[in-house]
Nucleic acid binder design. Sequence first.
DNA 1: TGGAGAAGTCAACGTGTGTTGATTTTAATA
DNA 2: TATTAAAATCAACACACGTTGACTTCTCCA
Lengths: 188, 188
Amino acid sequence: MNKAERQTKSDRTRAAIIAAAQAVFAAHGYERATVRDIAVRAAIDPAMIIRYFGSKDELFTRLAVFDLKLPDLSAVDSNQIGEALVRHFLSQWEDGANSGLTILLRSAASNEYAAEKLRAVFVEQVMPGIASVGGRAGAAERAGLVSSQLLGLALCRYVLKLPPLVTMHRESIIKQVGKTIQRYVTGR
Amino acid sequence: MNKAERQTKSDRTRAAIIAAAQAVFAAHGYERATVRDIAVRAAIDPAMIIRYFGSKDELFTRLAVFDLKLPDLSAVDSNQIGEALVRHFLSQWEDGANSGLTILLRSAASNEYAAEKLRAVFVEQVMPGIASVGGRAGAAERAGLVSSQLLGLALCRYVLKLPPLVTMHRESIIKQVGKTIQRYVTGR
DNA sequence: TGGAGAAGTCAACGTGTGTTGATTTTAATA
DNA sequence: TATTAAAATCAACACACGTTGACTTCTCCA
């Protein structure tokens, strides 16, 4: 075995910790998630988490990241941008239900670090994307409105689990909310 | 002094505890708010909080209530329902910045009791209001969409404090988001 | 004014938390 | 197989939390 392969054991527990931490942080948010919960789920000792990641904070920091992976909107048919954005957003969410965005949204309301991270996602990813369509004029406000609708949708459907939004079919949401986003993005 | 007035002393600390608790719960959410924080802010002993309210949970329960005070929507010009709803919602929010809705929204993402309370607000207050306009057909879904936009707006403007939404003028928001709500409520 | 009940103070308890250091076990090399 | 470093275990720490009960102070009426 060469050196790279030899580390496979510790890599595995490292991965187990990350997977468990993602699930627990996503389910309960930062404050309510405990190192011991994560350890149980990963079937390891709580001390290992500190050993591998330094502290609960550092582990959270490592997982509280999110890449929207916005496509090039200037390449999309400009009448379809709204629906395309909602569709993309829903996919991003459902693909990685335990991933960054869930963790951030669950924690941001009571955790300033997570809130700041979410604001950064807005400034670095949403803003530029919106500005690339319909020009820079009023892009910040348009991006803000877009975010309010998309985050609100995620909050209600995935976090609060408001019955009608949970039940509602993906395509209905895309059609309805798509119209809203379309108007926000293009200014009608 | 009669009996009612004699209790004025304890009523005052009772009120101080409530005010302090509203502020702390609204600022940090249930998990992060501590009995000791509330006590410091109310300038009283932590033990008094337990003495007066039984437990942190009971105090929270007492404050985690919200009355949307929706006006009779069937009396509003049906072309103005969207704007009227947003205006009403913003007023409700800004009037009592430390009150029920803030507390609920700050806590609901990581506190199942608060989430349940928010769902109850939806079922008991938003749903009936929306159903009273445009009929019962699809009322649940329409109400869900309305909630996603309004809660998303509150989340971004008051909790996450996304810069453009914080800066944006009240009337611009009412105009822009009003159109969205109008379409959701009336089904276009 | 003295006594009784309310209001407030104080120190401490038990519990759950993140974290640490010493120790034991495991696994790869010589 | 013996050796050595990595990996995992364990018990315990320090701290913050909600909560309790005994005690003191205040306040008002007889």
